[in-house]
């Protein structure tokens, strides 16, 4: 670990200023950043501890939705009565991630910004275009079991590892951002994370000096809400594949199917065509397979992770078959 300067801004304005002008890196729960600093994957010269700038509240919005403060913890969010009642897919997604201890410390904003767990990214003695642009991708011909099958590039096949953002994507939540010049902007969660392309080091759309202040959930839509995480061990393991689903049925036909997938790509994967293929259809195996065909049309495995292609299909069945029963 390198020596670093540590500061505690008291306001969002101060925080965005030190991040923009002094090149400080914001730290909140630190559950990911501290590990990466010990490994020297991250070597910030300055840390801005933003835990004292506010934005820890969870509040109703005028539109009837819910605003999740960026600095509210994952635990506080998952147990919030309105999250549990109106957005159960989010509560379930958060609770399926990490461990109780980590969730107690991790914040909503930080969770969105967590880095990939690719073995080659976290090992500074191995090549990684994300960590060390131009050094190559260790994973493509290496151990790539956890890696992406959708939206990959020649540069990077890493996955976004989180669960919370997958549910937020299905819910079509948006990210509220404070900019360096004192303004605010809002980005849909579905557009917040980037695909690797030729810039694998760029994982989300935050510009220099920008800090997430909140996540806004739209008014609740009801329906059957499911978060299904397929993993090798039943806790403290990243998803092989995960599915966030909000499903409604009427007269035995899908009237709503908002779906997002984790473990498949560099970002929570939302393809509107997958849900659209289900609307107006009965929950038969054939219908679900057609939706899976759309989801996986461009999927490409890298040997060790080939299994994710059939597994994603099966996970979709696992979610939609019982959901249809529950919603019908």
């Amino acid at each position: 670990m390198r020596p670093f300067a540590y500061g505690r801004p008291r306001t969002i304005e101060e925080a965005t200023r030190v991040v923009a002008d002094d090149g400080a890196m914001a730290i909140a729960g630190g559950t990911n950043l501290l590990d990466l600093m010990k490994l020297q994957v991250e070597t910030p010269e300055k840390l801005a501890d933003i835990n004292r700038i506010g934005f820890g509240e969870i509040e109703d919005t005028q539109a009837g939705g819910l605003s999740l403060g960026a600095l509210a913890t994952n635990t506080a969010t998952a147990v919030h009565p309105r999250v549990r009642a109106d957005y159960p897919v989010l509560a379930r997604a958060i609770l399926s991630g990490a461990t109780q201890q980590l969730r107690n410390k991790a914040t909503n904003g930080g969770n969105l910004c967590q880095r990939t767990r690719c073995f080659y990214f976290t090992n500074v003695d191995q090549p990684c275009n994300k960590r060390d642009p131009g050094s190559g991708c260790g994973a493509i011909d290496g151990v790539a079991k956890l890696h992406a099958i959708l939206g990959t590039s020649e540069q990077c096949i890493a996955t976004y590892p989180g669960d919370m953002a997958v549910a937020l994507s299905a819910l079509d939540a948006s990210v509220d951002i404070a900019t360096a010049n004192g303004e605010k902007r809002t980005v849909p969660v579905r557009e917040f994370h980037c695909l690797p392309g030729d810039t694998p080091w760029r994982e989300n759309v935050l510009e220099e000096g920008e800090i997430i202040t909140a996540i806004t959930l739209p008014p609740p839509v009801g329906g059957t809400q499911i978060y299904r995480k397929v993993r090798e061990r039943s806790s403290y393991a990243f998803a092989l594949v995960s599915v966030a689903a909000i499903v409604e049925m009427e007269d035995g036909l899908f009237t709503r199917a908002d779906l997002a997938f984790g473990g498949l790509a560099h970002k929570p994967w939302h393809d509107p065509r997958v849900g659209e293929a289900l609307i107006g259809q009965p929950p038969t195996s054939e219908t679900i397979d057609r939706a899976a065909d759309i989801l996986l049309a461009d999927a490409r495995g890298f040997g060790e992770n080939d299994f994710k292609i059939p597994l994603a299909r099966r996970a979709l069945h696992a979610v939609l078959e019982p959901a249809a029963e529950g919603a019908g």
């Binding site: 011909d141 151990v143 079991k145 061990r233």
Partner: peptide, 25 residues
């Protein structure tokens, strides 16, 4: 344990990625 096929290094070298059973298992 997973080893890199090119240089033989052990890749999953921490308790997050080497999966011993947890309480829930």
């Amino acid at each position: 344990l997973e080893f890199d096929p090119r240089d033989g290094h052990l890749v999953n070298c921490d308790l997050a990625e080497y999966h011993v059973p947890v309480n829930r298992d």
